[in-house]
Computed example of a mutant assay.
Amino acid sequence: MIDAFFFLFVTLWPVLAHAVTDKSPELYGVLTYTWVIGIAALGGVTSFVSKVQRGEARAYNIVELIGELFISAFAGVMTFYLCELIDLPPLASAACVGIVGHMGSRGMFVLEKTVERILKGKLKLTIEDKEK
């Protein structure tokens, strides 16, 4: 159920963002997306480097590094959207994007829970996990 919710959220995010606020993902320019993805990807690189130093990853595993970069970039963009939704100042948004980019898949879990709380609060949706 959570996977289906997550898929619907990702595909319907532009519609939800536009319905809740006057901001919309297509209104941001290439420069904005470049810095968001860049900061998030830098967070992913630092995460990968620390995994290599701890012995949890091999330094020459390019596939793992690319995976880390994609996850970090996606988490960073989603974090940016949430920061914009709540009108966080740009510097705070940049910090959040970098931190969640460093968190990678752990950051996605945190974002999932945050979005769940937002949807429950603003849209009065009930989300239940049938796997439990």
Rank of each mutant, 00 (worst) to 15 (best):
K51G: 05
I37F: 11
E56R: 09
H102Y: 10
G107E: 05
E116D: 13
D87E: 14
I37W: 07
V30A: 13
V63I: 12
H18I: 02
K122M: 08
V97L: 02
V20P: 08
F9E: 15
L12E: 15
D87A: 13
L42N: 03
F80C: 01
G121Y: 13
F80Q: 01
P90T: 09
V115I: 15
L16S: 13
F74P: 04
K51E: 10
G43R: 02
L85S: 13
V115D: 09
T114Q: 05
E112N: 01
E116V: 12
A95N: 00
T32I: 12
K124P: 09
E112R: 00
A95Y: 03
S47F: 02
S50R: 11
G44D: 05
K124W: 08
K120I: 08
E128V: 12
I37E: 08
S50W: 08
T34V: 15
R58F: 02
V63S: 12
Q53V: 11
E64Q: 03
E26A: 11
E131H: 14
I118W: 07
D22Q: 14
V115E: 11
H102G: 05
T34L: 15
F74T: 11
V15Y: 14
I127F: 06
C83S: 12
G121K: 14
I127V: 08
C96N: 08
L123G: 01
K130F: 10
L12I: 14
T21K: 10
A73Q: 01
V49N: 00
I2P: 10
V100L: 02
I99C: 04
R58G: 03
K132F: 07
P90Q: 10
M1F: 13
A17E: 13
I2C: 04
V45M: 02
R106P: 04
L125R: 11
S50E: 08
V49A: 06
I62V: 10
V97Y: 03
A73N: 00
L125I: 15
E112G: 02
F6A: 13
I127Y: 05
T21F: 10
G43E: 04
I71Q: 04
V20I: 13
I71M: 06
E68S: 15
F48V: 05
S24T: 12
A59N: 03
T32F: 15
E26M: 11
E68C: 12
V10P: 11
L111K: 01
F74L: 12
D3H: 15
F48S: 08
K23C: 14
Y33T: 03
F7G: 14
